[in-house]
Amino acid sequence: MDKLEAKNVNVFYGLNKVINDVSISIKPNSVTAFIGPSGCGKSTFLRLFNRMNDYIDIFKMEGKVEIDGKNIYDKAIRVEELRKKVGMVFQKPNPFPKTIYENIVYGLRIQGIKDKNILDETVEKSLKQAALWEEVKDKLKNSALALSGGQQQRLCIARTLAVEPTVILMDEPASALDPISSAKVEELIYELKNNYTIVIVTHNMQQAARVSDTTAFFYMGELIEHDSTKIIFTNPKNERTQNYVTGRFG
């Protein structure tokens, strides 16, 4: 069964239609890249999967978005529960102004988990998964803001992993990082694929080509083409996709 599925989705900001009749299926334990020029709607579309657009006053949606076959915009769905299952990593590293430790356990604390053993274990496990443990294990009580940008972003990934989601949405997770940090985040995404379903929005073609299994090209609010990454980058069916991935526009 598909992990994520959108069916005939339209999104409006006020009278502006920003997503036009998009349907897509995403397999479990895969990495899907959303590419397309700025303003094409790929970030908005990504944020549908954890209902992050809900806070925008003028946001309106039509159609169905399903995770594990369940419509997440159903009235019976508690949005807080949904977001524990669907984690998100943002463009700019956004650690809380707390210690490294407190950043990681935040998601557990808000669920009311107080057991110190569980918290400690989660911190170690998540930081190891995010390939950050060796760098920070001796300074867990230091402020997260003292870390470098790349470390902060891996901390944010670790923080997301700590709540044990099954899906991770990444909105240009490496665009604010230097090339070396960026490479580390990419490696990490590749590792995480084994256990999570990952959707990543990126402006970086090489990155999309390197990390993803399938790629979806968005243009002007429409999904132009979604296929295996290999096909999108070597032999796309649509001319606009061809032009975009070869750098002729965008």
């Binding site: 954890n50 992050m52 806070y55 807080e80 529960e81 949904l82 977001r83 524990k84 984690g87 998100m88 943002f90 700019k92 956004n94 650690p95 809380f96 102004p97 707390k98 935040y106 998601g107 604390r109 808000i110 669920q111 944010c156 923080r159 997301t160 709540v163």
Partner: peptide
């Protein structure tokens, strides 16, 4: 306090109240 902190909190399943008093007010 940057919007990104609020988003980080919501993104991990916090309610508005938790976000307000555990993230925004301390920040």
């Amino acid at each position: 306090v940057p919007m990104s902190l609020r988003e980080a909190s919501y993104g991990m399943g916090s309610t508005r109240l938790q976000t307000a008093f555990k993230v925004m007010v301390p920040a």
